[in-house]
Every structure is written in structure tokens, then in C-alpha cells.
């Protein structure tokens, strides 16, 4: 079982205060962390490997500091890492990001399972999973709670309006996980030591290695400018009979009938 996990690195939101009135983001502590949903994906990958054998490759894309997040995944038990170092910021464009990641997955060799988070906190990066699946022509299992592989099929559980549902797809497959799908393990001291001892554990590539013509890495869009939600207003009071209120709640929470 060869598993590839695509990860993103984000600015730690707990070191950040957003002041809606002042229309400003205050960064008190500039620390970068592994995107929480991707951390779930790493844990899910390790669980699949522990059950079915095989190895886990972590693929990260970003400025050089992304290597530290890959190392974090290695300290949790992943087998090797592949970093695509992009200092240009072109990979902020979801299409570019997906193309480079798909190229990296191909480069990493044959695989059975690609996992990633179903959202990226600092961007609208939830697109990456389906986009990569499209590029690699894989079936996709989006926002699943668990993944298990047996023989040539992947089985997953996803949450629907009417309860949990079991879905399956033939391997190879791409699945995405929400940030609260599991309890990611911590790295261990010994593995951290080993990660730094073995400098070859993380291979580094540049976008040009994956896309020599530069065609795939030219962005179509640009992000810039910031907006803020209006400062929290006093909420709406829901009026009506208990039945009416309950009806709205059922719809809002997506509880179904």
C-alpha cells in the first residue's frame, strides 16, 4: 500500500487576533503549523499503513519552511517527504497548486491512496483534493471520517444528513478528511532526532523540476486585499411557535426529517 499525503502549511491562527472594528489582523506570534485538516489526513494515512503495511510519503508545497511541516509528519511516523519549494507565491492559485501537486504525485511513483485535508484554513484550498483527483483521473471520497483499504478497494465513512454512510471506491483513490476526523498522534522524541539526522528523508524539488515549460505554474488569478466581516451584531431573535422554531433549526442544522 503506497500512500501519499498532500499537506499545506499555514500561519497558526492561535497567534493571531482579528479585530473587525479596526479592520486589522494582529499577528502576535508568527508561527507556522501543519494545516489541521491535513494533520487528520496524515494520521489517517498512518493508520492505513499500520493496518495494511506499505509506506507513507508526505508531499508539501510552499516556501522553504514547508519542509518543517513535512518533518513534523515524518516525526509522527511517515516514511519520506517530498517538498516542492516555491518562493514565488504562484502556488497560491488553486489551479497551479493542484497541477504542481499532481505532477509531484506522479513523480513520487505508483500509489494506491492519496489523502489530504478537506479545507485549508488560510485559503480556499478545499479545491485541491478534487482538482488533483481530476488531474490524476481518480475517484474521490470527500470529507470522510475514516479510510480503510482492503484488497483493491478503499472503504470510507462519511457523514450525511441522515447519519453515517459507508462508501467505497476501487484503488487508486483520493480522499479528503475534515480537521476533526481523528486524534492525530504526536511525534516522538526519537523520531524527531532521526528526522534531523537523516537529511535525505525530505527530498526538495522546485516547480521547474515538475513543470519545465512553466506553463502549469503560471497563475490565472491573484489574491490580494482583505475584507472583514461586520463586527458581530446582536443576533436575530427567532420568533414563532416552538414548532416553527424547531423547523428552522432542523433545516439550519441539516438534521433532515
Amino acid at each position: 500500500m503506497r500512500i501519499i499525503v498532500l499537506i499545506n502549511q499555514i500561519l497558526d491562527p492561535s497567534g493571531m487576533t482579528v479585530n473587525r472594528r479596526a479592520q486589522q489582523v494582529f499577528v502576535n506570534r508568527r508561527e507556522y503549523i501543519l494545516n489541521p485538516a491535513d494533520l487528520s489526513a496524515v494520521e489517517a494515512a498512518l493508520q492505513v499503513r499500520d493496518a495494511a503495511g506499505g509506506d507513507v510519503t508526505i508531499v508539501g508545497l510552499g516556501p522553504e519552511r514547508v519542509v518543517e511541516s513535512i518533518r513534523q509528519a515524518l516525526s509522527m511516523g511517515a516514511d519520506q517527504g517530498l517538498a516542492i519549494i516555491d518562493e514565488s507565491g504562484a502556488a497560491a492559485d488553486p489551479a497551479v497548486r493542484a497541477r504542481l501537486l499532481a505532477a509531484a504525485v506522479r513523480k513520487a511513483g505508483p500509489f494506491d491512496l492519496v489523502l489530504t485535508g478537506d479545507r485549508v484554513l488560510d485559503s480556499d484550498g478545499g479545491q485541491i483534493g478534487p482538482r488533483v483527483a481530476e488531474l490524476l483521473d481518480l475517484p474521490q471520497l470527500i470529507s470522510v471520517e475514516t479510510v480503510a483499504c482492503q484488497e483493491n478497494r478503499a472503504e470510507a465513512i462519511r457523514s450525511t444528513e441522515t447519519g453515517y454512510q459507508r462508501v467505497e471506491a476501487p484503488l487508486p483513490v483520493l480522499a479528503t478528511l475534515p480537521p476533526d476526523a481523528n486524534r492525530p498522534r504526536f511525534g516522538t522524541a526519537q523520531r524527531i532526532v532521526n528526522v534531523y539526522r537523516d537529511q535525505s528523508a525530505v527530498k526538495c524539488l522546485s516547480p521547474a523540476d515538475l513543470d519545465p515549460t512553466g506553463e502549469a505554474s503560471s497563475p490565472q488569478t491573484r489574491s490580494g486585499g482583505r475584507g472583514y466581516p461586520t463586527p458581530r451584531e446582536p443576533g436575530t431573535r427567532l420568533e414563532g411557535t416552538v414548532e416553527e422554531i424547531t423547523g428552522r433549526l432542523v433545516t439550519a442544522l441539516g438534521l433532515g426529517a
Partner: peptide, 18 residues
Amino acid sequence: NEEQVMFQSMFRDFAQQE
């Protein structure tokens, strides 16, 4: 150094969560 930073972050995650 990088290694110490990663230790610190693992120690913190573990201590804060467990």
C-alpha cells in the same frame, strides 16, 4: 536550532492536549 524548535512544538502539543 530547527530540531529544538520541533521538539518544543511537539512538547507543547502534547502538554497542552494531554
